[in-house]
């Protein structure tokens, strides 16, 4: 554990979560959510949870971003909030 690194990533994570919930374009929100997943994957590697980080990199940042993009493309891209 490296606490300087930890604090920086945690602050960036909060920023990424807020941005992805405030962007009006759903595709943009999905992409920022992918960034959020990669940040949290980095955080877990830093905390020594390598297996969890590996899973998050494959599942959270990879597959869930792809399936959310697929849904956005086959429904609608606009959002009112």
């Amino acid at each position: 554990m490296i606490w300087q690194f930890d604090i920086i990533i945690l602050i960036l994570m909060v920023v990424a979560a807020i941005i992805s919930l405030r962007v009006k374009d759903l595709l943009g929100a999905t992409m920022v959510f992918g960034i959020y997943s990669f940040l949290i994957c980095l955080l877990w590697a830093e905390m020594g949870a390598v297996d969890v980080a590996f899973t998050e990199a494959a599942v959270g940042a990879g597959v869930s971003t792809v399936i959310m993009t697929a849904t956005v493309f086959s429904t609608t891209r606009r959002s009112r909030d």
Partner: peptide, 21 residues
């Protein structure tokens, strides 16, 4: 090493998804 059924399975699935994309 880090890894196992869940991670490897997701990566195999992702390779088919890449092919489909």
């Amino acid at each position: 090493s880090p890894g196992g059924g869940f991670q490897g399975g997701v990566m195999l699935g992702a390779s088919y998804i890449l092919l489909a994309l």
